[in-house]
């Protein structure tokens, strides 16, 4: 027996096997908290290049996912921002109109522009109020900035508005400063012409032109525009006056119909 054990001990392979077995058992028997400490120490030192590279790859994967999500979020927010900007502009317009409505001594019917006439010789817009709201033909249409035009055709739920920039539209107007009267009409381009202003008038550039109320359609005192050109014409009894309209006709969205003269 002793000889057998001695032979085993002399056998170097047996010693290696026994050594490895014992070492493995020791490894297994180490308490888990100590194993964890050893593991942490080894991972943080010996395996650091590998774990750092692993972390780097994870960061790239995470960044890629986040990039996709953020791009998606950015697109959503861009749409939202555009929507907010639109709502803010509408809010400002409505506030301005509300303020105008409060200070106006006439009955105003708010309306939305639902169509724009495409005839270049008859400039008009279609609005969403009609006879059902008391609107009639020749009712003035205004915004907070000034005169837009007048109703020329009324149905039950809508009506057509002839714009001030229509060739056939006329407004009796007065200069707020000098009280000079004249007739406003459109003669092409972006400006209006104020006719029948005598050369003796002191009307000058920068003066504000408002409706005079003499025509019977537009109430007095509603702004038409500002004088941008005022010159005497050679051999003529009248001045040449050009007025920049107070209303921007190309961006009308909400207007008021004044139930005037009813």
């Amino acid at each position: 027996m002793f000889g057998f054990i001695l032979n085993l001990i002399r056998n170097r392979n047996f010693l290696w096997i026994a050594g490895i077995f014992l070492l493995s058992i020791i490894f297994i028997a180490i308490p888990l908290d100590i194993k964890t400490s050893i593991s942490t120490a080894v991972i943080n030192t010996l395996y650091f290049p590998l774990t750092a590279f692993d972390g780097f790859l994870n960061d790239i994967a995470t960044a890629k996912k986040q990039n996709i999500l953020l791009n998606q979020k950015l697109a959503e927010l861009s749409v939202q921002v555009a929507s907010f900007a639109e709502e803010r502009a509408e809010n400002a317009r409505l506030r301005k109109m509300l303020d105008f409505n409060i200070h106006m001594p006439y009955t105003l019917v708010p309306a939305k522009v639902i169509g724009i006439g495409n005839n270049p010789n008859a400039k008009s817009i279609l609005i969403n109020v009609g006879a059902n709201r008391g609107v009639r033909v020749n009712n003035p249409v205004v915004t907070a900035d000034g005169i837009v035009g007048k109703t020329i055709a009324v149905t039950q739920n809508s009506c057509m508005v002839q714009l001030l920039t229509d060739h056939n539209c006329r407004v009796s107007a007065i200069d707020q400063n000098t009280r000079t009267q004249g007739i406003i009409r459109w003669r092409g381009g972006k400006l209006l012409q104020m006719g029948e202003v005598p050369v003796e008038s002191q009307l000058a550039v920068g003066d504000t032109i408002v409706s005079s109320g003499f025509g019977g359609i537009f109430p007095p005192g509603i702004q038409v525009g500002t004088v941008v050109y005022a010159k005497n014409q050679t051999g003529s009894l009248f001045k040449e006056i050009l007025v920049k309209p107070a209303v921007q006709f190309w961006s009308l969205e909400e207007v008021f119909v004044i139930l005037y003269g009813q």
Binding site: I20, F21, L23, I25, I26, I28, I30, K35, I38
Partner: peptide
Amino acid sequence: PADFGWAAL
């Protein structure tokens, strides 16, 4: 850590 030793053995 929980497997330490088993894989070696």
